[in-house]
Write a protein that binds this DNA or RNA. Structure first.
Ligand code: SF4
Ligand code: SF4
Lengths: 147, 147
DNA sequence: GGTATTGTATACTATATTAGTCATAATAGT
DNA sequence: ACTATTATGACTAATATAGTATACAATACC
């Protein structure tokens, strides 16, 4: 039940982006440096977020990336969905047709409950929540939120 | 965030075992057939469960496997821990030392909440719960619970 | 004691996924 | 034109997954 680095790094990237929103568009290079993620990999992570309408990008000089909508409207469940695909622990939870036992399988019911519990946490957390938590956590360091 | 087949099959194996508890010890071969899991793979799955004190095995003719404790005392959280290791979505949740950012990282806090939400479901579900659900689900088929 | 029956342990393998790197193209500003 | 910047796709190394195969050890039954 591990989250891949896509989900981990991608979330950190978005939080970093949200924390530097006033300076938008933000250079991927800067995010890469602050978050210690290679630029090349970050480029891969940002792609699905752009496609998913969470991030807007501007190419060329003075370009960069910015949030495509207010951070209060970006739920972590969306983010993880875009970066990792469905959170369902087992495929049958999303699509009963993948397994002939689906109808009568009670373990499936549990995996579904598990999914819902996870979704409860992720859907109730927005990027703005993360930003607020971060600011609460590092009140002394002014505007420099390196995470 | 997928559960590997170890966790999936292992849980089904235990449920099958619990459903056939009166016939214990149960042949791995029979479980394999009912659950459509290869015997060789099932042998792999049962090993950590024996080591973890959930299953007892009897070798030789008339042998097989049985539950080492009452099904009400077997929590799914234990089972998954034995079969998949920690449920933590990111390693830093269990051991902050793995990442230098742990101290100030708010995404880590979320991953921790996620873990706790998952553990809430798994720790509150016992094998007996699963057995009961299965019996509720298939009341017409008598003792034949193939899952 | 011999033999069939069962689980135990180890080694091996094929495939898929992860976590990247690298080169190149497209685009925007100056 | 030139430069800065993201976008895209090809490629790769390392790891994890999902098994299979083989040999071994213990037990029950005759
Ligand atoms: S056996 Fe049950 S849990 Fe596993 S895939 Fe089939 S329906 Fe889902
Ligand atoms: S960056 Fe945060 S979430 Fe990721 S490993 Fe470090 S502490 Fe954990």
């Amino acid at each position: 039940m591990k989250l891949s680095t896509k989900g981990q790094y991608g979330t950190r990237m978005l939080l970093d982006l949200a924390l530097h929103e006033e300076e938008a568009p933000v250079l991927l290079k800067d995010i890469a440096q602050r978050q210690q993620i290679s630029l090349g990999y970050l480029e891969h992570l940002v792609t699905p977020l752009i496609a998913g309408g969470i991030v807007r990008s501007t190419r060329g000089a003075k370009g960069g990336v910015s949030l495509a909508k207010p951070s209060e409207q970006i739920k972590l469940s969306e983010v993880i969905q875009l970066l990792e695909g469905s959170i369902a622990p087992v495929a049958c939870v999303n699509d009963p047709a993948v397994c002939s036992r689906s109808e009568s399988c009670v373990t499936r019911d549990i995996w579904d409950e598990l999914k819902q519990a996870m979704d409860g946490v992720l859907a109730s957390t927005t990027l703005q929540n993360l930003v607020q938590r971060q600011k609460d956590k590092q009140p002394l360091e002014g505007a420099m939120y390196y995470i």
